[in-house]
Write a protein that binds this DNA or RNA. Structure first.
Lengths: 340, 340
DNA sequence: CTGAAAGCGCTTACAG
DNA sequence: CTGAAAGCGCTTACAG
């Protein structure tokens, strides 16, 4: 099948190609009657503008890029990226923007992808996740002047806007809740220690524990995978002075932690309370269902896409706080049975 | 920063733009010495060909499309799509192909997306999943002559090649294994009943149960979500004549089923054995870890990408069987404790 | 309000 | 082996 072009429309409407372009893009320069005629012809013959031609004539590529940096074994079950993607689509779909995806292994490889995308003019902007202190990607994006929005923080991202969430407030709330239930020995299993939001959470966790006079505030660093979550949990539960509650930096590690407790014959929540960061269907899938720090990841993604599209349009965009994280109590938390 | 073009390279190398194009694309028409000089200049100035210009001059868009058709709440935790995506990338990355993603709600909407992509020349081909009997997408793809590869089957997909797997053989193996353990009452919780592979599995399940003389071969249709998995499991376990083993069509429903059993005070595998279709880290994450019908989803994706790239290159591609599904026994299956 | 034309950055026959 | 040129399908100043 031959793809229809604006020339086909112009011929049928008896106008020039320029007029068709103006009509299609809502620009002034054609009469209302002509515009209507052109639009109805376009509709009728199923016209979609060739995105290459449009991009080449200086318009946008009408696509944004996202890199996924996770080992394959975790990529599949961590709801985080798919949640973000669902959110993006809500915004992108309405403006016929496409989402281009690339799996990478390291931030360095990610930089290569950004450079290539930029050179190819393949995308109009990127969404950056997993931000680190002194992140190597930031100066490259600034140098390329590639519109970008960072998901994560708060932290230093130079001139690039970020969508951040109050992780410190959330973890403080979780600790206060556990203490109110009667817990004194609270531990945490964190995500990768080099990520900015992990550091923010660790600092806040230590601060709130100190302020409440808890001295067992141990954070064991892990990497979001089930394997590491299990390992960290075993290490915590083997000791004599084991915690009565553990907060996990993601749902996958929390579920793995639950399995370890069950395997060791500990009852949840009787012997051990569990809190998962990031609520996902996974938390409600297991027994007992996990108390979680919930936030609407999809809304987070939608907001990021909105900001990025604004940045691409040349608007000034600043840092934005995402929707609040809130505690969703479920069956995995309760007063400690015997706190001796 | 100004993007370098072939004109920049041509100027620096003292040759024509045409020569640069030939050199870059490995076409004959330039001497070896010139080609080397051009390539080193391109390397030096970090040149990537403008993908829009390339696509417009008749070459490929260098991108393939994938639509994701799942409700948001399941998209995030089902490892299937992310596994596929990881697999695609292994093939696409090597040839600098991009992957364009679009979330859709229905097959009809998916068709609209295909039409638009085709009109925009945005992608060179698509990978189609969730194939149904008499699938409405097939004739559209054929009419548009959009290169495509179907993941799923075996079944009728007209002239479009499919990567299929022997689901019938796999479920037969699973049932035989359970029967060998001593189970007689085996049930199944399936995915969406309108999907071709669900129907293939159901037929094979009923056939093997009949051939082995099991008369409780009940399949309860569900939809891959944890909610439906729980509902179906409760329905099965509430009855007086409850099954001693359940096979689930995906890992999410199997995990949900495990939780329901635990919630009802049934021991797994003592009172109930559980088999999950599609092994994923999720199966090893819970306690007990789930016996699973494993296949390498990522390899499946890689194979599909390979076939699609071949089809885009104009090669004839036929149906291909994906790597075999095999049973991975874990802690969730055992002889039934008391089979009265 | 409309038409004719240049130009985006490539690829690819077509001459030399 | 190399250069000059047309053309892909749009967008957008520039004349009328």
């Amino acid at each position: 099948m031959k793809r229809p072009t604006i020339a086909d429309i112009a011929r049928r409407a008896g106008v020039s190609k320029g007029a068709v372009s103006y009509a299609l893009n809502g620009q002034p320069g054609v009469s209302e009657a002509t515009r209507k005629r052109i639009l109805s012809i376009a509709q009728e013959i199923g016209f979609s503008a060739n995105s290459a031609a449009r991009a080449l004539s200086g318009a946008r590529a009408q696509a944004i890029g996202l890199t996924l940096c996770r080992p394959a074994r975790i990529l599949g079950i961590e709801p985080w990226f798919m949640g973000l993607i669902s959110g993006f689509e809500a915004e992108l779909g309405a403006r016929s923007y496409a989402l281009t995806l690339q799996v990478v292994a390291t931030p360095e490889q990610e930089i290569e992808v950004y450079r290539r995308w930029w050179g190819e003019r393949r995308i109009d902007g990127v969404i950056v996740t997993d931000i680190r202190e002194g992140d190597v990607r930031i100066p490259v994006l600034q140098q390329l002047q590639l519109p970008a929005v960072v998901i994560g923080g708060p932290g230093d991202t130079g001139s690039i806007a970020q969508i951040w969430s109050d992780d410190a407030g959330a973890i403080t709330e979780a600790v206060r809740y556990l203490v109110a239930l009667g817990h004194h020995r609270i531990a945490r299993v964190s995500g990768n220690a080099d990520l900015l939001h992990t550091q923010n959470r660790t600092k806040a966790f230590e601060a709130v524990c100190a302020s409440l006079g808890l001295d067992h505030a141990l954070t064991i660093p892990a990497d979001y995978t089930g394997e590491e979550g299990s390992r960290a949990t075993r290490r915590l539960l083997i000791g004599g002075d084991r915690p009565t509650a553990i907060i996990y930096d993601n749902d996958v590690m929390a579920v793995a932690g639950l399995a370890v407790a069950q395997e060791m014959g500990l009852s949840v929540p009787g012997d051990l309370s569990i809190v998962a960061w990031d609520d996902s269907p996974l938390c409600s899938l297991v027994h007992p269902p996990l108390t979680a720090l919930s936030r609407d990841i999809s809304a987070y993604g939608a907001q990021a896409a909105r900001e990025l599209l604004a940045a691409i349009d040349g608007q000034k965009v600043g840092n934005v706080e995402a929707g609040r994280v809130h505690l969703t109590p479920r069956g995995s938390t309760a007063p400690p049975r015997q706190d001796l």
